[in-house]
Nucleic acid binder design. Structure first.
Length: 550
RNA sequence: GCCCCAGUAGCUCAGGGGAUAGAGCAGCGGUUUCCUAAACCGUUGGUCGGAUGUUCGAAUCAUCCUUGGGGCGCCA
């Protein structure tokens, strides 16, 4: 709010002074409070294009800025910073304004209704979701919520790889476990097969439903039945895991369905028409090196089957056909080699490759008692997303995943996430919310809480701790826009902790409910109620609950 | 060998080219007749992996080096 206000004010003054303003300057909250409540580098950034010394330009701007009664002081410092001290009256006005907005505070039309498709998780339906999928779910969903809040039209989609090689292997694994269940000696379980215990569970369930009937089917039909059963079960399992994590997808797109619709042939013909396919060693290749990939890629294998790339590309093209102008894919750390061929295909088919944006999440390591938890997918020894959520809970899991920037490795300390004390940041934030609720309850009990608040009450708020809280709250709208723009939801976690820190400090220093000074009490109630609302907005955007009591 | 990501306090990590680089935890010392001590206050702690460059200004941008993690399939 205030940053935008200052930014606009400076721009107005620049244009009234007929000064050029091509480069974009910034308005920031300085690290050091001695440098004011807000600070701009405008004079330094614009010095060159206006052929003026930074300090002289700053002086010129400051002279005009000082006419605004909302600035307590406008000073020039260092190499040409303009530092603002904001009057209490502006903060008081801002508090009243943001209070009126209620849960719409922070909403904007920044995204201009751009249709954005967020694809994330998209795990193989061949087993339970792992912790990297959980990280992707938390990241993608939070980004979705924030983008929606600031005026984009985003949608979440899960691409189901329910066709191809891995699904065949899944069916084979299930058949072996089923035979084993019937007392057959299956020998050593194949290396490539799925070793997880869940395959045995599936076998039991299928056996209970169909018994030996399945073995009477001809081989082809039996395989189809096994595939269908396993896919349905596992997909439902994944969907439930995500639902428990409060992640709901607008769309689930099946690779099998896409194939049945004939899109594979379409994509092959597009690429052929674009003159970038060729035949070699009985396979059909995409000459992706022409478009920046480091090797050409197979489209159709020598056995006549199609590679993963073709239907996936087709899927991406359907996103464009459905009117999305920004396609954001959230990938795990093992897929970065895949991006050049996807980008190459966009170039080959003359689509703007900048529409496609890939975000990489780095790996997650679990730590317990200071030791890294070892996992092996091959041996079926993994900690699943459900395991994690069962142990630490949805709130802590989501918080820890969101709090790190996407492209950094994440060390997840299981014990820390479980601790219900000041070491655990998720409790620190939730506790602030609960604490406020508790004060409000007390105020109602003491009959200090008014039937309705009056704007004049805000004038009672002028202590530095009170104004600092208001200032922090007003930073949220600009922050949300930045987060959406740079796809950096982790900054919301940092912000939330800072806001809570200011509140806890305020709480320890100032009594809110006091019979001696009813008006001040009411003013402070108005303040902390707003803090509670802003906190609830932040927690909701992160998909974390805001408890009234802890 | 090639490609991607990371290296900031003892630990986990913030840090839109800007001022004296921050937070939490750990360590040390304090705070409760009072709205939740799941909190707060004080204090110790740094060659921002290294080098060069770009500029008025670099933890931030570029190049090289180094260490750690991941990826280089007619798997997905």
């Amino acid at each position: 709010m205030i940053k935008h206000l200052l930014h606009d004010n400076i721009r107005e003054i620049l244009s009234s002074l007929e000064l050029s303003c091509e480069k974009d300057f910034t308005v920031e909250v300085p690290n050091n409070p001695e440098n004011g409540d807000y600070s701009t580098n405008a004079a330094m950034i614009l010095a060159r294009e206006n052929k003026a010394a930074p300090k002289k330009l700053a002086e010129k701007l400051a002279k005009e800025l000082r006419r605004n009664k909302f600035y307590k002081s406008v000073e020039i410092a260092g190499p040409g910073f303009i530092n603002f001290k904001i009057s209490a009256s502006l903060y008081q006005k801002m508090l009243w304004d943001l209070r009126k907005l209620g849960c719409d505070f922070g909403s904007s039309d920044y995204g201009q209704k751009e249709k954005v498709l967020l694809e994330f998780v998209s795990a193989n339906p061949t087993g339970p979701l792992n912790i990297v999928s959980a990280r992707a779910a938390a990241y993608g969903d939070t980004l979705y919520r924030i983008m929606k809040k600031v005026g984009f039209e985003p949608a979440r989609e899960f691409y189901i790889n329910d066709a191809g090689n891995q699904v065949d292997i899944l069916a084979e694994s299930l058949e072996l476990r089923l035979r084993e269940l019937h007392g057959e000696n299956i020998g050593e379980f194949p290396y490539e097969a799925y070793h997880g215990e869940y395959v045995r569970h599936l076998a039991h369930k299928l056996n209970a439903a169909e018994g030996v009937r399945i073995f009477m089917l001809p081989e082809k039909e039996r395989t189809e039945r096994l595939k269908e059963f396993a896919l349905n079960e596992l997909l439902e399992m994944q969907r439930l895991s995500l639902e428990r994590f409060d992640v709901i997808f607008e769309g689930w797109v099946s690779e099998k369905t896409l194939r049945a619709e004939g899109v594979v042939e379409e994509v092959l013909s597009y690429l052929t028409e674009a003159d970038c396919t060729y035949e070699k060693e009985d396979a059909i290749w995409f000459s992706s090196t022409k478009f920046g990939d480091d090797k050409d890629r197979v489209l159709m294998k020598s056995d006549g089957s199609i590679t993963y790339f073709v239907p996936d590309l087709a899927y991406h093209l359907t996103k464009i056909q459905r009117g999305y102008t920004k396609l954001i894919d959230v990938f795990g750390p093992d897929h970065h080699g895949y991006v050049p061929r996807l980008k190459a295909a966009f170039k080959a088919l003359k689509y703007d490759e900048d529409m496609l944006e890939i975000i990489f999440l780095q790996q997650v390591n679990l730590f317990e008692s200071g030791e890294r938890v070892k996992m092996s997918k091959r041996a079926g020894k993994i900690v699943t997303m459900d395991d994690l959520v069962n142990v630490v809970g949805k709130d802590a899991a989501r918080y820890f995943f969101i709090a790190r920037k996407a492209n950094a490795h994440l060390n997840f300390d299981l014990e820390l996430a479980l601790q219900q004390n000041n070491e655990n940041p998720v409790y620190y934030c939730q506790y602030a919310h609960a604490r406020i609720c508790s004060i409000l309850k007390k105020a109602r009990k003491d009959k200090v809480y008014p039937r309705s608040f009056k704007k004049e009450l805000t004038h009672k708020l002028n202590k530095p701790d009170e104004l600092a809280l208001i200032q922090k709250m007003t930073d949220l709208p600009e922050l949300l826009e930045l987060i959406a723009q740079h796809r950096e939801p982790h900054r919301l976690a940092t912000y939330t902790e800072e806001l809570c820190g200011l509140f806890h400090r305020f709480y320890n220093k100032h009594q809110v409910v006091s019979a001696k000074n009813k008006e001040l009490s009411q003013a402070r109630l108005l303040l902390i109620e707003s803090v509670k609302d802003v906190l609830a907005i932040c927690l909701d955007l992160m998909g974390i609950s805001a408890p009234e009591k802890m």
